[in-house]
Design a protein around this nucleic acid. Structure first.
Lengths: 209, 209
DNA sequence: AGCGTTGTTAATAGACTTATTAAACAACTC
DNA sequence: GAGTTGTTTAATAAGTCTATTAACAACGCT
């Protein structure tokens, strides 16, 4: 029992550090956070961070990998073939948007750390595992719709970029908007909900033949 | 004459430092750059950076202010009333896109430094000086078009966000795309040119009633 | 009870940062 | 050519950061 408690504390500590690191890295990026700060957040000694993860870069990599996987996994959606293409598309757009809402700092985090050249291998692999599959599937769907004259001619790549662009931006620009427009939390949430619908409208409209 | 030469060298050095700082900050952000690195890039002693700009934060602020102003100024476009709304809109979209092409690191830089809470006052002021004017003008134009039934109902705010979202994203995601798609410079430029047209198509299509 | 294992801490080495200071230097004035 | 002024450098203080090490604590096992 006590052993278990101890063990829980142990695992708890290792994970506590990871979670604290996650939060801080998401907020301020790799360079903006020190292992000392992580330790302080957890409430443990700074050496402990290194005891479990050896290096800061190592710890960061674990966080980054998780977040990147999540970001990519957002697009893996169960296809329901009883729905029309448009209906499926709306679901995709909305669920992508909702996933971002749950982790609003994620886009900035990933984009920024990519700029910093950190761990480009992970990035490349992760995307290469997912991107082609995603694009090909969408391409097939699009082909049918285009040939049937239900939507205009557009590549899966462009459509995907359009959706991601429109969905991500609100979360990237959120801090600016808060400052500039002086929105409180409630207003901000309303605005975000509004944007979700606007993205759907914009995409659907833009696809008409 | 010699005095002038001396003065030029002086200004030259002061400006050289500013330009070097500009490049480095754009590339790596505030935390990613040291005054030592800036000095190394200029080829001068590190103390000289402090001689001219006292603190790193001070130097950064000068850079940031310039860049922010540029980013906002992008939208100030001469209106040609002999053109239709659609023609004017296309010009706006394209010139915004082209301006970003000239400084592809700018969006990431600004968004990231805003995340870091650095100099939020400058940001707020700069945007507050420009944003309302921009929005109001566009709102008026839109009203006419909407009432005439030439475009669907949309707010100036949403349209602006849509355009900015679509235009900015390629530059934010450029590093990823280079890695993942393995594009060389020429292919990348072609892709970017293609995206410019695609953004125009998407926006115009999305505005149809 | 004592030994080994694991978790945790304090202390610290070593590298790097920002910022300051004092001295060297260059260019020019009178 | 002595002095003035502004520029540049070397040296360094003071601090922070990462990572390591050695000591200590708590427990499990035999």
């Amino acid at each position: 029992m006590k052993g278990q408690e101890k063990n829980n504390q142990k695992d708890g500590m290792e994970l506590s550090i990871l979670y604290a690191a996650e939060e801080l890295f998401l907020e301020k990026g790799f360079n903006g956070v020190s292992t000392t700060e992580i330790a302080a957040k957890v409430g443990c000694n700074q050496a402990l961070v290194h005891y479990y993860y050896r290096t800061k870069a190592n710890l960061f990599q674990k966080v980054f990998e998780n977040k990147l996987k999540y970001m990519v996994s957002i697009f893996e959606i169960i296809e329901d073939n009883s729905l029309t293409f448009e209906e499926r598309l709306v679901i995709k757009i909305k669920s992508h948007f909702d996933a971002l809402s749950k982790e609003p700092l994620l886009p900035m985090f990933v984009l920024n750390e990519i700029r910093n050249n950190s761990s480009t291998d992970i990035i490349r692999e992760t995307f290469r595992q997912q991107a082609p599959n995603l694009i090909n599937k969408l391409e097939e769907e699009l082909k049918i719709e285009i040939e049937a004259g239900r939507i205009r001619n557009i590549s899966a790549f462009d459509l995907l970029i359009n959706i991601i662009s429109l969905n991500i931006f609100v979360f990237l620009a959120r801090p600016i908007m808060e400052y500039v427009l002086g929105l409180d939390e409630e207003m901000m949430n309303k605005m975000i909900e509004h944007r979700k619908q606007e993205v759907v409208n914009t995409i659907l409209n833009s696809l008409r033949p």
